[in-house]
Design a protein around this nucleic acid. Structure first.
Length: 370
RNA sequence: GCACAGGUGGGUGAGUGGUUAAAGCCAGCAGACUGUAAAUCUGCCCCUCCUCGGAGGUACGAAGGUUCGAAUCCUUCCCUGUGCA
């Protein structure tokens, strides 16, 4: 899932994302709540219509901001007080308010409000944080069950593109649902780097019965080997017949590896952010296009990549755009990285479809996924 | 020709007797980036040596001078801008 925090995958338009084959985007409740505001989005028909994205959307609950905005917030059992990073204003987030916001935004998949535990943290701190997330998960679920019908699209989800009624006939049915009137609320497993707490968190989250489960609290500064360890330790307790979503991961190598372990969904800002910073992922490894060595390199970014960027532009040109600070550099770089990630996942799905459990890169076999 | 104002490291621009190899910014070079406070952040950026903490050498238009000590003060010269002839 490409990340589009502010209802925008930075640098790429929605029509292009469709062409690239993106099936689902991630948006962020906290950011959209602050701007333009949930009510604003709701009145404009919900997030899909607002951002003109006919395919699936998942919104994060704001739980990650509990972690990343640690300078600007205060956590209590009841909820989290945030100071807006935009204007300093104070806002109180609770599981209930997060659910209300996410129902108002109207994404297809919404996330329970959790606390992403910082790393490192001692066991007692991790346990308390995990318990908090479990209490919040229960409250999230309860509120959601009571209000899940209050989605912005009303009885039947449906909208057309383009927005203007005078425009051509390119009307599309939404591709996200089959008439569902509600969203899917996923639970989030925490537990830090402690396998036994992960197990407990998973089991107790499952008891609450969600249609999908996420592994949160990783990629927060821990060594990569540890990330993998914790993923494996957690995954085995999550039902294989429901989506398993590993939050905030990872590099191209990592997403293949995790898919091989049985992870179904992942999101990461890495491809888009790195692209804007001149770091490009290729079949031959990472390329920092800003390096002087590419100044007169006429070849494609990645000779093995069939994306529209690699088919058309040279490394020298991409390097020039970056050096000259042209916005096009960010656009082209982002398209490439996204294409590379999408191609990677397509290969993974293809491999699975062929009944070939073996993952393309590491060759590790999944224990639990067909 | 006269009168002012200036000449600082690749650029710009602080500094106006010592703590100044000389701020900041830009350019340049390299690195980081993993549920986005990120078109961001970090390091290097005169030369040589180096045990990477430093050591030495050059340097603020040029040449002299004053001083324990000068990018900073004085003299002459060169150059640039503006104004007046």
């Amino acid at each position: 899932m490409p990340v589009g925090t502010l209802a925008s995958v930075k640098g790429v338009s929605q029509d292009l994302l469709e062409e690239l084959g993106v099936q689902i985007l991630l948006g962020n409740t906290y950011h959209l709540y602050l701007r333009p505001g949930v009510e604003q989005v709701r009145q404009l028909g919900g997030l899909h219509r607002f951002m003109a994205w006919p395919r699936a959307i998942l919104t994060d609950s704001g739980g990650f901001q509990v972690f990343s905005l640690n300078e600007l917030r205060k956590v209590t059992d009841e909820g989290v007080t945030f100071r807006s990073h935009l204007d300093g204003s104070s806002h109180f987030f609770t599981p209930e308010s997060s659910m209300a916001a996410q129902i108002g935004l109207g994404a297809d998949v919404i996330m329970a409000f959790d606390e992403c535990t910082e790393h490192p943290a001692d066991r007692e701190r991790v346990r308390q944080s995990m318990e908090l997330t479990l209490r919040w998960a229960e409250r999230s679920k309860k509120y959601f069950e009571a209000h899940k019908g209050e989605v912005p699209w009303g009885e039947v989800r449906g909208f057309e593109f383009p927005v203007s009624s005078r425009a051509d006939t390119r009307n599309q049915k939404p591709e996200t649902g089959n008439g569902d009137k509600t969203q899917a609320l996923f639970g989030i497993v925490q537990g830090g780097m402690d396998s036994s707490l992960r197990k407990e968190s998973a089991e107790r989250t499952i008891e609450l019965d969600f249609p999908g489960y996420a592994i949160g609290g990783l990629s927060v500064g821990e060594p990569r080997a540890l990330t993998r360890e914790v993923v494996e330790a957690t995954l085995q307790y999550l039902p294989a017949d429901k989506p398993r979503y590993l939050m905030g991961v990872g590099t191209p190598e990592e997403i293949v590896e995790y898919a091989g372990l049985g992870v179904d969904m992942m999101d990461c800002v890495l491809p888009t952010r790195a692209a804007r910073h001149g770091l490009l992922f290729t079949s031959e490894g990472r390329i920092s296009i800003k390096q002087a060595r590419y100044a007169s390199d006429p070849g494609p970014l990645d000779p093995n990549c069939g994306c529209r960027i690699c088919r058309r532009y040279s490394r020298a040109y991409l390097r020039h755009l970056y050096a000259a600070n042209e916005v096009l550099a960010q656009v082209l770089n982002t398209i490439h990285n996204l294409s590379f990630y999408l191609d990677t996942m397509r290969a993974v799905r293809h491999s699975i479809a062929l009944g070939n459990n073996a993952q393309p890169v590491s060759g590790r076999r999944s224990q639990t996924k067909p």
